[in-house]
């Protein structure tokens, strides 16, 4: 049974299509990423999956259950770590977990045991008696993830889990997500950080304007859309661009750079060097960020 199955999934807000008839399937035990610029529809999709927003049309099944018919049953077995910090400021760190566990009808004793175990897991044991406003942003994110795990979910939804965190805190969260993957928990992830998606996701989709524009494994997508290497040339001339175009190489011209996508970076550089003076250039491995920018465009989304 797939963890999530969507067919023609659509969400309308006052005549505006936030999610436009998308199809996807997430298998149990995989880490699946939703990427896309702001307003692409990824958070809306996540909210429909955790029954926080009604589906306008199409079919959406979570762990074999229809979101329209069984929201309580679905919410009982999934964990949600929202983008927004909505920890309960009226309680201590530990109490946030036990009170949350009670919403799942978990007995008090068991709530306490799970809370202690999760605080340990997220390295928050020392902060157990602190109030929420007193802990750092990174700790809040970890606590939100710990809270999402109180009901020992079969599927965990992480909506931008590392936004605004320092590198140490990000790496700690990545470690924990990998540990969950080893425990065969299905993880759904949205992120703006392509390195994060590349490290964590088994498969991902890139969304734009409510539609899925790319789907696949991170490495596969890089190979398919970009190739092995990216050659970045500073301050290119129009003749150089014309030459690259004539040679039939995949390229992109930004305001101050020429990006050539190729599997043979060294050979392309040698060829260009023969004909043009290049003050500065760089050959680097293609990344998911290249895929993202190439597929969703470089224009700012406000």
């Amino acid at each position: 049974m797939p963890a999530v199955r969507a067919e023609g999934l659509t969400k309308m807000f006052d005549g505006f299509k936030a999610v436009d008839a998308i199809d996807f399937q997430i298998e149990e035990g995989e880490c699946f990423g939703f990427l896309g610029p702001n307003g692409a529809g990824k958070s809306t999709t996540m909210r429909m999956i955790h029954c926080g927003s009604p589906v306008t049309s199409g079919k959406l099944e979570v762990l074999g259950m229809d979101v329209n018919d069984s929201p309580r049953q679905i919410k009982q077995v999934i964990g949600v770590a929202p983008q927004e910090n909505n920890l309960d400021p009226d309680f201590t760190v530990r109490r946030n977990l036990t009170v949350y566990g009670r919403y799942f009808d978990i007995p008090n004793g068991e709530c306490g045991r799970r809370a202690d175990r999760l605080l340990e897991f997220m390295q928050l044991s020392e902060k157990r008696d602190e109030m929420i406003p007193e802990i750092s942003g990174g700790m809040k994110r970890r606590l939100i993830i710990a809270r999402a795990m109180m009901n020992e979910p079969r599927m965990l939804i992480l909506d931008e889990p590392t936004t605004g965190l320092d590198p140490q805190a990000r790496h700690l969260i990545w470690e924990k997500v990998r540990e969950l993957k080893r425990q065969k928990v299905t993880v759904l992830l949205t992120t703006h950080y392509m390195d994060e998606a590349e490290r964590l996701c088994d498969r991902l989709v890139i969304m734009d304007h409510g539609k899925i524009i790319l789907e696949g494994r991170p490495r596969e997508l890089i190979d398919r859309v970009i190739g092995a290497d990216v050659l970045e040339i500073d301050v290119p001339g129009d003749e150089m661009e014309a030459y690259v175009k004539e040679r039939g190489w995949q390229y992109e011209r930004t305001i101050d750079r020429l990006l050539v996508y190729t599997d043979q970076g060294q050979r392309v550089v040698a060829e260009l060097k023969e004909r043009f003076s290049m003050s500065y250039y760089l050959i680097r491995n293609a990344t998911l960020e290249d895929v993202f920018l190439r597929s969703t465009g470089r224009a700012l989304v406000e």
């Binding site: 926080g52 309580r72 919410k75 009982q76 929202p82 927004e84 909505n86 309960d88 919403y103």
Partner: peptide, 14 residues
Amino acid sequence: YQKTFDAVLATPLS
């Protein structure tokens, strides 16, 4: 302000 309702809505409560 506290978004308590949002947090609880992610649990089996309606």
